[in-house]
């Protein structure tokens, strides 16, 4: 027998559920109210909160442990030897090893050739240290000063960054008793007006020490009047060395020698 469903019929279970829920909640509240004499009030307030927060907290703790679970998955791995290895006679193995060893020797020689056989200088700008090598032999090491990583900003929208460039450089020029031709920033930094390009005030004697080795683009390896700042990053981009170290570097490196700055 076909029963005709009306809208009321369809809504009936929902209405029943709604009424039921209301009665159930009321009953629960009454039950909780009756607990007044057993549990303190704050406990009744926090109990539902605790019930809601606990699963979330458990879930969050679990999620936090996911990387550990992932790493723990390694424990179940067995050693893998997926390659099909040919069963070989010993002499076949020996031949292969000899061939490899020859190739290794060749590669090693190719790598060794890349290190300059003549003198070269390493400048460590982070630690403000230098190492002077002759071929593979370290002949001197010590402290130096490199760029201060200062950005000088002038009101005229001009700015200069004082840092020592990194990379491979070559000694372009060598000078004794060098004279410093002060660039514009030297005047800006001191709050002085910038003079014309070849004005007398641009030339300073003795500031760069006894020797200077040019690296190009205005960067130099030179001495300093401020020996107490050696080992600190205080320069405008040049590399400052102590007097004795500078002398040794000057006499060891020749024009074309490599300088590695890192």
């Amino acid at each position: 027998m076909n029963k005709q469903f009306t809208e009321i019929d369809l809504l009936k279970p929902i209405l029943q559920l709604k009424n039921g829920l209301i009665i159930w909640v009321t009953k629960k509240i009454t039950f909780l109210k009756n607990l007044d004499h057993i549990y303190p009030r704050y406990f009744r307030i926090f109990l539902p909160l605790l019930c809601a927060v606990t699963p979330v907290a458990v879930l969050l703790v679990y999620i936090a442990f996911l990387p550990a679970i992932q790493e723990g998955g390694n424990i179940f791995l067995t050693s893998h030897h997926p390659v099909i290895i040919k069963d070989s006679a010993d002499n076949e193995n020996v031949d292969a090893m000899v061939a490899r060893q020859k190739n290794i020797g060749k590669l090693q020689r190719a790598l060794n050739k890349l290190t300059p056989s003549s003198s070269y200088l390493l400048i460590n700008t982070s630690e403000n240290k230098f190492q002077l090598y002759s071929g593979k032999k370290l002949i001197r090491e010590g402290i130096c000063s490199t760029g201060s990583y200062t950005m000088l900003v002038s009101g005229e929208n001009k700015k200069w960054i004082f840092k020592t460039p990194k990379g491979i450089f070559r000694i372009r020029d060598k000078k004794t008793s060098p004279v410093w031709k002060k660039p514009d920033w030297a005047f800006v930094e001191e709050g002085l007006p910038i003079p014309p390009p070849n004005h007398d005030s641009r030339f300073e004697y003795g500031t760069l020490g006894d020797y200077a080795l040019s690296l190009g683009d205005g960067y130099m390896i030179h001495g300093t009047l401020y020996q107490r700042f050696l080992g600190l990053p205080v320069t405008h981009g040049c590399v400052r060395l102590g007097d004795d170290d500078l002398e040794k570097v000057y006499h060891t490196l020749s024009i074309g020698s490599k300088v590695y700055i890192f």
């Binding site: 630690e127 403000n128 990583y149 200062t150 000088l152 009101g155 960054i161 709050g191 600190l232 205080v234």
Partner: peptide, 22 residues
């Protein structure tokens, strides 16, 4: 980088050393 503003004149000059990174 430490930004340093250029002094307007010599009276404004500060002998400020940069903050040394080390």
């Amino acid at each position: 980088y430490m930004v340093k503003n250029a002094p307007a004149d010599t009276s404004d000059l500060q002998s400020a050393l940069p903050v040394i990174d080390t």
